[in-house]
């Protein structure tokens, strides 16, 4: 039997808008995944430690505040410190195109802008976590 994927959805930074994060959480749940939703105003430390304790297969971060340039690479660095550098991290929210290259270079697996479809995100998570699961077995 295939086990459900466990995905952490978090909101780093100080903006108080989590509608997007909740929509993603719901879409992943409806796709049969277990979504650990950590809520608003999370520090990178809180996200990385929650990811460790929950042993998640992927992490999705929603950020609208414009602080993605510092917060997202910090999450990646902390995950690597904790031996969880193999967990794919994807991001969504308001992230200008010109920042995407730098974020990907910092280790963010994918960035989903406002035009992304839920189906696209679900498929991305499936594709990337299957690879990881296969490697871990």
């Amino acid at each position: 039997m295939q086990r459900p994927l466990r995905i952490l959805i978090g909101k780093p930074g100080l903006d108080g808008h989590d509608r997007g994060a909740k929509v993603i959480a719901r879409a992943l749940r409806d796709a049969g995944m277990e979504v650990i939703y950590t809520g608003l105003r999370q520090t990178p430390e809180m996200i990385a430690e929650a990811a460790l304790q929950e042993d998640v297969d992927a992490i999705g971060l929603s950020i609208l505040s414009g602080a993605h340039g510092s917060l997202l690479p910090r999450v990646i660095a902390l995950l690597r410190e904790k031996g969880m550098g193999d967990v794919p991290v994807f991001a969504g929210g308001i992230i200008p195109d010109e920042d995407v290259t730098a974020l990907k270079a910092a280790g963010i697996a994918e960035v989903f802008g406002p035009g992304s479809s839920l189906q696209e995100i679900v498929e991305f998570v499936r594709a990337h976590t299957t690879l990881r699961g296969a490697a871990a077995q």
Binding site: P4, R29, V35, G39
Partner: peptide
């Protein structure tokens, strides 16, 4: 229905 779940207690 889907076997999925939203686990939000950490909030």
């Amino acid at each position: 229905l889907t076997g999925g779940a939203i686990l939000g207690d950490r909030i």
